[in-house]
Design a binder for these strands. Structure first.
Lengths: 339, 339
DNA sequence: TTGTATGCGTTATCAT
DNA sequence: ATGATAACGCATACAA
């Protein structure tokens, strides 16, 4: 059932039907409008959005998830942080009349392709893996683009960031308050500005407390369970540290497992903090002390920023910075007195 | 850059370009073909898929996720089973040249709408919540539809199922072998054929061992952490059972937490089994003994079934039934001797 | 092997 | 307030 067919049945032109559909009330009399609406109802008219995309906007918002080939698991959705985020995107966009197209991408070429393929109205990039190529992306695509966790502040880019450094700063500071001095940092910040920021927070807290960070304080490992487990085992067997600050809940979960597999326990033998406050944080035992980054607010901010720009709102507030907070649970405690 | 523009630059008609794009090699000389290809390269030609959808197929596959309003959390993606599944869908479809449109839906109307809106080529329905309306869906939409975990076997429906009953049967039987006789069942099967099947497996194993199931053996609660926690606490405080069979890993995780919060522990005071073998199973402590349902295979089966039908393969094998297996980890053990 | 005409369903422009 | 026409980009049918 097309507009033309509806028009015929209603004895009007297709333009009138189109005007009714698009709410151009000034161009159609109430009487015809109602008649057309009735006939659309009766015939279950459904607009063909491909056709509409050809002339007008598509209402498609792309959500791009960079795929890192080196990663051990290529199912990106196993990451609860991402899953939660995407769920919020889909929900919000749907309720506002848009269509979310979630798409994993291996390069910015994939992004350009997708945007042009479907006349995408706007896009969200969830990880900062392509942040060096943001300028290229913005140049090529004249649509609003939201970048999460990306600090390459091209003024034309829409960005949503969190106070990454503050999170690890708060975590480290708290550990120091509890009496820890030998605190390890677990995170792979090579070429990763996000993790680098989180390292900086750790660094700052240590410095303020006049604690030196030696080379072997840093475990440069990926944020996956198995790597965390290795680190946990290593730390507790060598008894070098009484606490560890991580950059992801899954790392902390792995560390707990590693510590336990070596016959020790968290937090008695090692305090550990996570990051993100995902569902993992309350599933593991002991529950994680971690940095809550308000994932829901982050996701809705991204959507709102994007849609506001689409509506042409001239709000010059292209950059959103969200706060974080430390959530203390059971994976941290005072260090043992006896050492 | 459109086909027409490319055609002009190449000094050919737009149809020739179209034929090159669609690989109709018989209709274009190799020479022109190469020339056109070169010019497309140079100008970064990208097809407009909305336009193509208007004449040909859209290459869009919809993935529908029923939204249950009564659910406490409406972010469906928090379920690791679903997240993993969707990740596999997206990955597989992308690699085969399709576009996954993930969409949460509240009714089959939402489904019909979406399919017509975008000329969707095929769709996957991940939960059986609308299984009573499968006939309606199939009647209205003339495209291949895959239903997961749905046993309403309309022969035109494509279905992927698992041996639900077998999973709980194996779990219960194993508990009985370990010496348990008082075994609770935790799952809300009211109007839910999937959970009902899983109950039947439990029932069968109990019956075969001549163990009676009394009314209070059944905890009719939703599969969420907090409900599991309540059940765990209740079970262990009343000392009625030495084991519990659940229908979801998250339930089992909740039970473990409940048991622990009451000052007891798993598996010493209560053995518990999960279902699905999601990431939760190995994150919690103790790691779950659970039923592995080969999620990856399930998801790829669904995609293959769908794409085969789209290609017109006449394989009359519209229904796939996958096996399950019991994975024994650390949440089950022999019951205490002293009781 | 290549080109022309036409239509997919919608909306913008211009006319009435 | 309503309608006629053209155009979006592509692919099918048919012609050359």
């Amino acid at each position: 059932m097309t507009i033309t067919e509806i028009a015929k049945k209603a004895g009007v032109s297709s333009m009138t039907v189109s005007n009714v559909i698009n709410g151009h009330t000034k161009r159609v009399s109430l009487k015809t409008s109602n008649k057309v609406k009735r006939i659309m109802e009766e015939n279950n008219y459904v607009p063909n959005l491909s056709a509409r995309s050809l002339r007008a906007s598509s209402n498609i918002i792309a959500v791009f998830v960079p795929l890192v080939k080196s990663q051990t698991h290529n199912n990106i959705f196993l990451d609860p942080y991402l899953s939660q985020m995407i769920g919020i995107f889909e929900e919000n966009l749907r309720q506002k009349g848009f269509f979310a197209m979630i798409r994993s991408v291996e390069s910015i070429n994939d992004i350009n392709l997708m945007i042009q393929n479907w006349n995408v109205d706007g896009a969200i990039l969830v990880y900062p893996y392509f942040e060096n190529q943001i300028d290229l992306l913005l140049e090529k695509n004249k649509i609003p683009l939201v970048f999460l966790d990306s600090f390459k502040n091209n003024p034309r880019a829409l960005t949503v960031n969190i106070r990454d450094a503050k999170g690890t700063y708060l975590a480290t500071k708290r550990l120091i308050e509890l009496g820890h001095t030998k605190i390890a940092f677990v995170g792979n910040y090579e070429g990763n500005t996000l993790v680098t920021s989180r390292f900086n927070g750790y660094h700052q807290a240590m410095e303020e407390a006049h604690l030196t960070i030696e080379k072997d304080f840093i475990y440069t490992v990926d944020s996956i369970f198995s790597e965390g487990k290795k680190v946990g085992k290593d730390i507790v067997l060598n008894k070098k540290f009484t606490a560890a600050v991580t950059t992801a809940d899954i790392s902390a979960a792995g560390i707990i497992e590693g510590v336990r597999s070596a016959g020790y326990s968290v937090p008695e033998d090692l305090s550990v903090t996570g990051y993100d406050d995902t569902s993992i944080a309350t599933l593991v035992y002991p529950k994680l002390t971690t940095v809550n980054q308000h994932i829901e607010q982050k996701a809705t901010s991204a959507v709102n920023l994007l849609l506001d720009k689409l509506k042409g709102k001239t709000g010059d507030n292209n950059h959103i910075l969200l706060d974080v907070e430390l959530i203390e649970r059971d994976s941290t405690a005072k260090p043992r007195q006896d050492t």
